[in-house]
Design a protein around this nucleic acid. Structure first.
Lengths: 259, 259
DNA sequence: AAGTGGTCTAGACCACTAT
DNA sequence: TAGTGGTCTAGACCACTTT
């Protein structure tokens, strides 16, 4: 086995090279699940790097889920676990970033009286005036997503501004400024298309759809927006990868979770 | 503003304390999206820690998606982005770890002739003998998931062993030994319940269901298992949180992604 | 030139596990 | 006791951006 070495002249920093060397060795089967990696001091000598650099590489592998450590015993390769899979909203984001033929059509903006459910979600008394926005997101002529959103009505802030700031879909997905929102809860469930949604999405009533529900809070921990994206089930899919893929790992954050 | 300090006597290491201090300051609104954090050398002085410790904290915040850095300019608080949400299979895992009343019932184990689709997925000629395993996963008396899995038939390895090793569901979810599997692709789609699935899951035909499809590869990059979990749509939900939640962040890996 | 992020060193010290 | 992981220091050097 030809021992790989750290190339100090390379653009790639030493800790990254070490991460990829170790990942490759695991990936090649040199170390299998349950096996013990060389000790950190051993790695220092082998690759001629300082303890801190080795530690950094090991920490990254731990975060990736590739290995786990036990103090006083060693570093062990973890077996593959489905529960470490992470599914993202990449497909949604791509809709708004790539291919500019994605159109967001505002179907309705208005002030309505909060029903029991929206009042509870937004922590407002039932019957309070709240804002309702309904949108249809299409790619080309094909409607893909129906979005319904309920916003707290703040008399100090005009509806248009609220719509621009809080509810700009492009911003939320592609990285605009949702500076008023501190955090949010998301959930994905599956539902049958209602008559309303089916009509808008040009699909059959009762067909399965993804429902991405969201509830956003501001910096005062008050709900400001509640709503959901109804997505045609035949047009969306959530993907993930577990385990050790061949290609080297770069600096992007861990959508490719391991083990 | 009373400046928080690092407590050297505490169990919590300095870099973790610093992470939580910075997260709290962002969470409290001291730094808003787009704002510039104090420089690293400034943080060194303020909290009386070495550059490496500050760097480690900042790196963690970057991985969490909370901030981003620009060389020569500074560290900036990132706005909330939906696309950073990560959905996991925690609910599946819980099914197999918590509450031992989860039962996996083997409905069928047999050798069949590969049809076009399974042959293609497993990279075998059509008509090859492959293993089919059908399972029903129930909590108490309530059937929740119907699992169908196609395995490459290896004459050197008896079916029982293949089933134990490769396909032990508990292992895959809870962390057993799937040492023969190197990596896998997963995808979640939504489908209507077929007559077969509906019957097994005691649900209505045509009702929406989640379909978690999996394709596993061994260390030779050959497919070994293809299959899918059909999950009653009314029993499952995938959750995620984006942005800055109040509670302190601990060492667990980042299911709670930020930004 | 001064300030920023980014990497790295060569040790130190501690807690834990094995023997 | 010796070896392991885990944290931390006090600087060094580099690349970059701003003034």
């Amino acid at each position: 086995m030809t021992q790989k070495r750290i190339n100090r002249a390379a653009f790639e920093p030493a800790y990254l090279q070490l991460i990829n060397i170790l990942r490759e060795q695991i990936s090649k089967g040199l170390f299998r699940a349950g096996d013990c990696l060389p000790s950190e001091s051993q790695l220092c000598k082998t690759y001629k790097v300082s303890p801190m650099t080795v530690r950094r590489a090991i920490n990254a592998l731990i975060e990736q889920g590739a290995v786990s450590t036990v103090q006083g015993r060693g570093t062990f390769v973890r077996p593959l676990q489905l529960s470490t899979a992470v599914f993202g909203l990449d497909q949604f984001q791509r809709l708004f970033t790539e291919g500019a033929d994605t159109k967001v059509k505002i179907l309705e903006v208005g002030i309505i009286s909060a029903d029991a459910e929206s009042a509870q979600k937004l922590r407002q008394p039932e019957g309070t005036r709240i804002i309702l926005i309904r949108r249809l997101i299409a790619r080309g002529e094909e409607p893909l997503i129906y979005h319904r959103e309920y916003l707290v009505y703040d008399s100090g802030r005009p509806v248009v501004e609220a719509e621009m700031e809080v509810a700009s879909l492009h911003g939320l997905f592609a990285g605009g400024e949702a500076a008023t929102i501190k955090w949010g809860q998301l959930s994905i469930s599956t539902e049958e298309l209602t008559e309303e949604a089916a009509g808008l999405l040009k699909a059959e009533i009762g067909k399965p759809a993804f429902h991405l529900e969201h509830l956003f809070y501001d910096f005062d921990e008050q709900p400001v927006s509640w709503g959901g994206f109804i997505c045609r089930g035949d047009m969306f899919k959530f993907n993930a990868i577990v385990g050790f893929v061949e290609s080297g790992v770069n600096l992007r954050r861990g959508k490719t979770a391991s083990l």
